[in-house]
């Protein structure tokens, strides 16, 4: 017997999600394409928030599972923005303390350790180190623009801020990033001079 009371209590979204669970072949195909096109970007954006590779993978799959339930709401030209915005919100739920890097001020130690890890790995660690020194709000804008290559309207929509704020955050983020990298460079020279 139909439980109409329960059916009436199901929100439209929940019905939509139930539909998504029994997704059509077309939906599955779209999700597969979205995954192929964007999962690296989503995963990488989560890594730049300080998540480990495994944590970023967990958050990425959670992001795509949410997308699966909302495919009908995602315009074809906004898939990347939707996924990055969802990933951002998922990241905020991970227990705030894990979202940003665990920091200390011992840059020398970190730089030395990064140097020992091989060039590519060292550069990546140093980049994360520099980002970790930025104001998180600025770092977020910086990563989206400078590393992931989003346009300013995309960033404005994703962060729900005016275009002018994107520009000002980016300007301040650059100043902070360049200052930190310059300090890293000085420390690298000093460490290399000692060795």
């Amino acid at each position: 017997m139909v439980n109409w009371n329960l059916l009436a209590r199901m929100s439209e979204t929940e019905v939509t999600r139930a539909q998504a669970v029994v997704a059509s072949d077309a939906d599955r195909a779209r999700l597969a394409r979205m995954f192929a096109d964007h999962h690296v970007t989503v995963w990488r954006s989560l890594r730049r928030r300080g998540l480990s590779p495994d944590e970023a993978a967990d958050a990425t799959q959670e992001t795509f599972m949410i997308a699966l339930g909302r495919l009908a709401d995602i315009p074809a030209d906004s898939e990347r923005a939707f996924l990055l915005g969802t990933a951002r919100r998922v990241a905020f739920t991970l227990g705030r303390k894990t979202v940003r890097f665990q920091l200390d001020d011992d840059m020398d130690l970190r730089i030395s350790s990064a140097r020992d890890g091989g060039d590519a790995h060292a550069d990546l660690q140093l980049c994360d180190l520099a980002l970790s020194k930025l104001n998180p709000e600025l770092a977020e804008t910086f990563v989206l623009y400078e590393i992931e290559g989003l346009s300013s309207p995309e960033i404005a929509a994703l962060l729900e801020i005016p275009l002018g704020s994107v520009a000002s955050r980016l300007r301040r983020a650059r100043e902070q990033f360049r200052e930190v990298v310059s300090r890293i460079e000085r420390d690298l020279s000093r460490i290399q001079g000692r060795s």
Binding site: F35, W43, R44, A56, A57, Q61, F64, D123, L126
Partner: peptide, 30 residues
């Protein structure tokens, strides 16, 4: 140095295992 750091971050990708694990978890082949 700035160039190197940004390029390193832009080049980072999940391992093949991680990509396949994520794909499997959401039910798509990849």
């Amino acid at each position: 140095l700035e160039q190197r750091l940004l390029e390193a971050a832009g080049r980072e990708r999940p391992s093949r295992e991680l990509s396949e694990r994520m794909a499997q978890a959401i039910g798509v082949s990849f």
